[in-house]
C-alpha cells in the first residue's frame, strides 16, 4: 500500500508530487494574489527550475533555490517526510535529510512547467467528479488504516 501523507499548507503549496524523477509542484506567489509558480528539483542532476504558469522565469532563482523552491521543499517534507523526499532525490543518506535538502545547489534550467501545471489541474478535477452510492467492493483492498 501507499504510505499515508501528512498534509501540507495548501494555501502556500497547493500541489506537490514526487514524479518523473523530480520533486515538483505549484507554489502560490507571495506577493501577487492569483499568480502561481511551477517549481521543481530533479533527482539526477539537481536541476532547479521555477517559472510562472505562463512560463515567465522566476527572477529570484540564481544557482541557489528561490523562495518558491524553498517553500516547495518545505511542504514536500511536511507532506511526505524529509527522509522520503531526500531518498527520492538520491541525496546522501549520511546527512540529516532536512539539512541536506535545505542546502541544495544546482544548475538552473527551464523545467516542465506546462506538464506539471496540467497535472495540477487534473489533480483538482478529482474534486469535481460527483460521488456515488453504488458499492465499490474493490475498496476492501484499501482499508483506511493507521500507518504504524
Amino acid at each position: 500500500m501507499v504510505p499515508t501523507v501528512h498534509g501540507r499548507r495548501l494555501g502556500k503549496v497547493p500541489y506537490v508530487e514526487l514524479a518523473d524523477g523530480r520533486v515538483q509542484g505549484v507554489v502560490s506567489s507571495g506577493s501577487a494574489g492569483e499568480r502561481v509558480y511551477v517549481s521543481s528539483v530533479s533527482a539526477d542532476s539537481r536541476t532547479l527550475s521555477c517559472a510562472t504558469n505562463n512560463n515567465r522565469p522566476c527572477g529570484g532563482l540564481r544557482g541557489a533555490p528561490c523562495k518558491h523552491i524553498r517553500s516547495l521543499i518545505d511542504e514536500a517534507c511536511r507532506h511526505y517526510g524529509a527522509e522520503r523526499v531526500a531518498a527520492y532525490l538520491r541525496m546522501d543518506a549520511g546527512q540529516d535529510a532536512k539539512d541536506a535538502l535545505m542546502g541544495l545547489q544546482g544548475p538552473v534550467e527551464p523545467g516542465p512547467t506546462g506538464v506539471v501545471f496540467t497535472r495540477f489541474l487534473r489533480y483538482l478535477s478529482y474534486l469535481e467528479h460527483p460521488g456515488t452510492t453504488a458499492p465499490i467492493p474493490e475498496m476492501h483492498w484499501f482499508p483506511a488504516g493507521r500507518s504504524a
Binding site: V5, R8, H79, Y126, H129, G131, T132, T133
Partner: peptide, 9 residues
C-alpha cells in the same frame, strides 16, 4: 456505501 473521489492530501 457512499463514496467520493479525493486527492492524497
Amino acid at each position: 456505501s457512499v463514496s467520493a473521489l479525493k486527492v492524497d492530501v
